[in-house]
Design a binder for these strands. Structure first.
Lengths: 224, 224
DNA sequence: ATAAGAACTGAACACTAGTTCAGAGAAGTT
DNA sequence: AACTTCTCTGAACTAGTGTTCAGTTCTTAT
């Protein structure tokens, strides 16, 4: 044996992998999934096209990891917000608000992750991503039901419907296009959150203070 | 002038055009948008690939017309159902139920029309289609608000959210996969309809009899 | 019957982007 | 320094479909 990977090399390889993923993420955030092509991503990551294939077997794998990556961040944010809430109902509200804020904050990225047409087949990872997020929402709905704050219902269907409502209203092609204005953006988030909560049976969420003031980040990190 | 299109020819041309569109529709209903390729559609319509281009300038145009076509049918069905209802609230309920029933009845076609990835750019016609349907729902929401049955709200956002909820819960990748069973199918339709109505502020729609018994067609026409 | 115009055919073409791989360059060991 | 192994490069390759068009068939008018 005359060659062995040193720690330094291992680190550099890991860094390069991250750089490629980050480049893909930035590219998606800028130009949507359609822009996530091997050549541009490679350039952005400062590697040659062929190098991408030393880290990802195919474009489908690259995008799948991107989706999983973004999804992981999203899920963590939802859990953080929900766990910080004082009770099951506000935890649900916090979870929903978090999703709403996230998707409006990175419309293109969200749209790319969620539903934008891609050449390669990424249905599996998209499905997994959705299931993760929906599962978390479902947990919160269940908790609120157990606490007697919501009527009994099909929680899986409710969670799916709820996410669908948020997505279509906030990032889909029909989403209002003037969401650059912070005030309108917050209005939209609140309105849709309210709708979503009412859908699962929350009565007068506004009066009960469940629709928290959305804290909009000035600019959320998109890179690695 | 030695040649003139006779009525007979004009009719045959129109029939052929319809046949191509119908073939596209059937192909989409069977295999989704991905299956809608020129060659297979041409075969199904009993013409050569080149002939398709005598009727549609490009694949994008063909699919756009398909989307518009399906959308037109959908809109008509919604209007019919809503107009037959006794009041604004039940008109809204009828409209929502109609959409729900339609999408579950042709999952693949709906998914193809709505959101399935396509190689060519059909965002415009998809947007138009969504706007049409959403516009109709919005009208019904407005009417219910005017009648004092619903609280005042952003009707455009509500309509979008409502459709998003239906789609994600019933045709999206997270939709339950056991909807072949008529009973479960009807349950899902009712559950989601209820959710949607509650979202816009309908109180206890079930008790008020607004969620009508969904009449599921044995098999809705898919061809021309 | 015959000529002229229109419609149809389907194999060939073109285009786009993902993928490969032989050679160049680094990194590691003795 | 020499040699081996890994990593990187980027031009060439490939594959899958939408699109074209020269030749054929059908339709109409005289």
């Amino acid at each position: 044996m005359v060659y062995r990977r040193t720690t330094q090399v291992v680190k550099r390889l890991a860094a390069r992998r991250s750089a490629i993923l980050a480049a893909a993420r930035e590219t998606c955030a800028n130009g949507g999934m359609a822009a996530v092509q091997i050549a541009p991503v490679a350039i952005r990551a400062n590697v040659a096209a062929g190098t991408v294939y030393r880290y990802f077997p195919s474009k489908a794998d690259l995008i799948s990891e991107l989706i999983a990556d973004v999804s992981r961040d999203e899920l963590a944010a939802i859990r953080r917000a929900a766990d910080a809430a004082p009770g099951p109902s506000s935890a649900l509200a916090a979870a929903v608000t978090t999703v709403a804020v996230h998707v409006v904050s990175h419309r293109k990225l969200s749209w790319g992750i969620l539903a934008e047409p891609v050449e390669v087949d990424v249905t599996e990872s998209r499905l997994a991503s959705r299931r993760e997020i929906a599962g978390e929402i479902e947990l919160r709905i269940s908790a609120a039901i157990r606490a007697g704050h919501l009527p009994a219902q099909d929680t899986a269907l409710a969670a799916a419907a709820l996410l669908g409502a948020l997505h279509e209203a906030l990032v889909g092609p029909m989403a209002p296009d003037n969401l650059d204005d912070q005030a309108k953006l917050r209005d939209a988030v609140q309105t849709v959150t309210l709708l979503a909560l009412r859908a699962v049976g929350v009565m007068d969420a506004r009066a009960r203070g469940l629709v928290v003031q959305a804290v909009l980040p000035t600019r959320m990190a998109v890179g690695a």
